[in-house]
C-alpha cells in the first residue's frame, strides 16, 4: 500500500527525522486518514502487534489518540498510567520499562515529565519507542500533525511564516514544531513574555518577538500554546489577566493578520486566557482538524515503525 517506509526503531524527536522521513510520514497519514471515515474503521495492517501506552503524566487527548490509532491499525493497545503503575511504589523508570519489555510488546509509547526519558529507555528496549512528550523537550507526533494540518490547508510548508505564541520555555510543542517547520523550509517566529522565551532559542533559527499584535501582521500560521495556570505563581508572570491582555489572541488583535491566516492550538484550550472563544470557534481555527490529523499521523507512525510489510 505504501512505499519507502522509514527505517528506524524509534521516534524520539523531530530532531532525528530527515526531511524525506517527515514527508513520508505525512504522505502515509494522508492515505490512512480515509480509514477513519469508513463505516468499519479498521485496517488489518498491524494485526498481532502489541502497543503499550506508558503515561507518566495525565493526558486524555494524546493517550486516546495513540490508543485509537493502534486499534484502527488492528494492533492490541493497553494503557498504563503512572498512578496505576509500580512507579508510586518506588520502581525506577528503567525497571518499569524492562518489565514491560519482558512481555514482548512491539512498541512502547511514553509520556514523561523528564526530558530524555524516552531516550534512556530506548537504549534498553528492543521494541520501538515513541516519544509522546518528554518534559519541555519534544513532542514529535504533535509537530507532525501540525505540519500535516498546515500543509493540507496551505498546500505547502516552504516559505510560510509561522508564529508560535506563548510559554516557549516550557513547551515541547514549540520545540518540536520549530524543528519540524524549519526543516520543511518555513520561517518561524516565537512570541511571548520575555520570561517565557529561553536564551539561545535564536540559534535554532527563529526570530524572537515580545509583541503579539505586531508579530502576526505577516503570519500565515499562528500557533497558540496553552499557558499553564501554575506559571502565574513565582516570578515568570505577574498575573494571568495581564498575560491574557498582552498575549491572548482575540478578534481585535487578529484584525491585523492576513485574511487567510490559520490558527492552531495543541489543546486543551484555556478559553479566555491564551485564546478567546470567538477566535477558537472562528473559521480561521483548525483546532479540530488537528485532532483528526493527530490520529492519522499516529497511525502512520505505527505503520512505519512496526513494519506494516506483507
Amino acid at each position: 500500500m505504501i512505499d519507502n517506509a522509514i527505517k528506524r526503531k524509534d521516534l524520539l524527536g523531530m530532531d532525528d527525522l530527515t526531511v524525506d522521513e517527515i514527508e513520508a510520514v505525512l504522505e502515509t497519514a494522508e492515505k490512512l486518514k480515509e480509514v477513519s471515515q469508513r463505516d468499519i474503521k479498521k485496517v488489518p495492517t498491524l494485526r498481532g502487534k502489541t502497543i503499550i501506552n506508558l503515561f507518566f503524566e495525565p493526558s486524555t487527548r494524546t493517550r486516546t489518540s495513540f490508543e485509537l490509532a493502534a486499534k484502527r491499525m488492528s494492533a492490541d493497545a493497553i494503557n498504563i498510567s503512572a498512578s496505576a503503575s509500580s512507579v508510586v511504589k518506588g520502581e525506577t523508570l528503567i525497571d518499569t520499562a524492562m518489565n514491560l519489555e519482558a512481555m514482548n510488546p512491539d512498541a512502547v509509547v511514553i509520556r514523561h515529565p523528564s526530558p530524555g526519558a524516552p531516550h534512556i529507555i530506548s537504549r534498553l528496549l528492543k521494541s520501538s519507542v515513541v516519544n509522546a512528550g518528554d518534559g519541555a523537550h519534544e513532542h514529535p507526533t504533535q509537530a507532525l500533525l501540525d505540519l500535516m494540518t498546515v500543509k493540507e490547508k496551505k498546500k505547502r510548508l516552504s516559505g510560510l511564516q509561522v508564529v508560535i505564541v506563548g510559554d516557549i520555555t516550557h513547551s515541547r510543542v514549540a520545540r518540536s514544531n520549530i524543528i519540524g517547520f524549519k526543516k520543511s523550509g518555513a520561517k518561524v517566529r516565537v512570541v511571548g513574555a520575555p520570561t517565557l522565551i529561553p536564551y539561545g532559542i535564536e540559534n535554532m533559527g527563529v526570530q524572537v518577538s515580545y509583541d503579539l499584535k505586531e508579530s502576526i501582521k505577516d503570519a500565515d500560521v499562528i500557533m497558540m500554546l496553552r499557558i499553564q495556570r501554575e506559571r502565574q505563581e513565582g516570578a515568570l508572570l505577574p498575573s494571568l489577566r495581564e498575560y491574557s491582555i498582552r498575549y491572548g489572541l482575540d478578534m481585535e488583535k487578529l484584525e491585523d493578520a492576513p485574511k487567510d491566516v490559520i490558527i492552531l492550538h495543541p489543546g486543551p484550550l484555556n478559553r479566555g486566557v491564551e485564546i478567546s472563544p470567538e477566535v477558537a470557534d472562528s473559521p480561521y481555527s483548525l483546532i479540530l482538524n488537528q485532532v483528526s490529523n493527530g490520529l492519522a499521523v499516529r497511525m502512520a507512525i505505527f505503520y512505519h515503525l512496526l513494519g506494516g510489510k506483507e
Binding site: 530532531d15 526530558p115 530524555g116 518528554d134 518534559g135 519541555a136 523537550h137 519534544e138 516550557h170 515541547r172 520545540r175 529561553p198 536564551y199 539561545g200 532559542i201 540559534n203 535554532m204
Partner: peptide, 13 residues
Amino acid sequence: HEGYVSAVTGLKG
C-alpha cells in the same frame, strides 16, 4: 547550564 543546549533539550538551565 542555561544556554543553547538547555533551550534545545528543554532541560532546566
